[in-house]
């Protein structure tokens, strides 16, 4: 399902057919969110059960006509009316439904991305029993009047990089499962898949010097100013904060602590693997480790260099760069 942007494609008749359909639909109405569904995009056909009921209705019709049985006919026609209304209601359930957004939080390759869309009823009519179908995956949602609903469809990921989810189908068999109304659309906002982190990565480069990063985060001394406290016997003179002491008419001394360990440089060449993908995997694992240990690191990918920096935001930048590589 997840068509890959970075990996090679092979010609696929199904894909060609989809392209054709996409082009045809595109001429009728917008097919990329944000869009609001109107009659041009909505298709309706009976479900299997609908066809079955149709056959049953035919039998009832012929029987009642033959016996000239008017109440039998009335029953038949009530079923016909129910079917017609079923069709109209299914249509109405999609008509003027707006589909917006379309994005997924990045995940590591192999994980499931949750592609999110938000659905809203433009005319504030409640929309029960909507289903979003993407390939074999199916997710349902009800929209109460007025409020919008967010719907997330799981997408299995395999390769790193930016991907488009391909076509999706919003459908409904409300109210009686006789008819299914549906509309196709192609969310064009891509989602990012980070590389898969290596299962058992080698230790961080240069981490030999200071093993067990825990000690480094509780140092007694350091270079960064940490706080001011009451002077105690034994505090060195140069630690006395004279200015502050004067303000508070008391002897205060300064506390320092070392917050960070030495800087890390993570480079593609350093990763001990031959294959590019394997190296990227190792780097990915390193980046995750570095962030977990709250270290500052620089990621070097060929000529581009990210950092030095730290924190989750830096991690995401790095992972994205690795995904796009």
């Amino acid at each position: 399902m997840a068509e890959s942007a970075t990996q090679g494609r092979r010609p696929d008749p199904r894909k060609a057919w989809q392209k054709l359909m996409e082009r045809w639909l595109k001429r009728r109405a917008p097919i990329h969110p944000p869009l609001t569904l109107v009659y041009r995009q909505i298709f309706i056909l009976p479900t299997r059960f609908g066809w079955m009921l149709g056959v049953l209705m035919g039998a009832m019709l012929i029987g009642s006509l033959n016996f000239n049985n008017n109440l039998g006919l009335l029953t038949t026609f009530i079923v016909a009316g129910l079917s017609v209304n079923s069709m109209l209601i299914a249509f109405r359930n999609l008509h003027k439904l707006s589909i917006r957004g379309g994005m997924a939080r990045p995940v590591f390759a192999g994980q499931t991305a949750n592609y999110q869309l938000s659905l809203q009823s433009v005319d504030q009519r409640p929309r029960p029993s909507l289903c979003l179908r993407h390939g074999k995956d199916l997710v349902g949602v009800d929209i109460d009047s007025a409020s919008a609903a967010s719907i997330a469809i799981p997408i299995a990921t395999r390769w790193r990089g930016w991907h488009r989810p391909g076509r999706m189908r919003i459908e409904t068999s409300h109210p009686m499962g006789l008819f299914r109304a549906w509309a196709w659309f192609w969310p064009d906002r891509p989602y990012l898949v980070w590389p898969q982190p290596a299962q058992q990565p080698p230790p961080l480069p240069d981490s030999g010097g200071s093993p067990g990063g825990q000690d480094q985060r509780q140092p007694i001394d350091g270079e960064d100013f940490y706080s001011l406290r009451q002077w105690r016997e034994g505090d060195p003179l140069h630690r006395i904060a004279w200015k502050a002491s004067q303000r508070h008419q008391d002897l205060l001394s300064r506390e320092f602590r070392q917050e960070q360990s030495p800087e890390l440089v993570l480079a593609l060449e350093q990763a001990p693997a031959r294959d590019l993908e394997a190296r990227i995997s190792i780097l990915t694992a390193w980046v995750i480790q570095a962030e977990q240990q709250e270290r500052t690191w620089t990621l070097r990918l060929g000529s581009t260099e990210l950092g030095p920096d730290q924190g989750p935001a830096h991690r995401e930048r790095c992972l994205r760069a690795l995904a796009e590589l």
Binding site: G101, A148, S150
Partner: peptide, 12 residues
Amino acid sequence: QALIAASRAHAA
């Protein structure tokens, strides 16, 4: 409530 819900449902 609708605003809060929308903020949670928003795809971005």
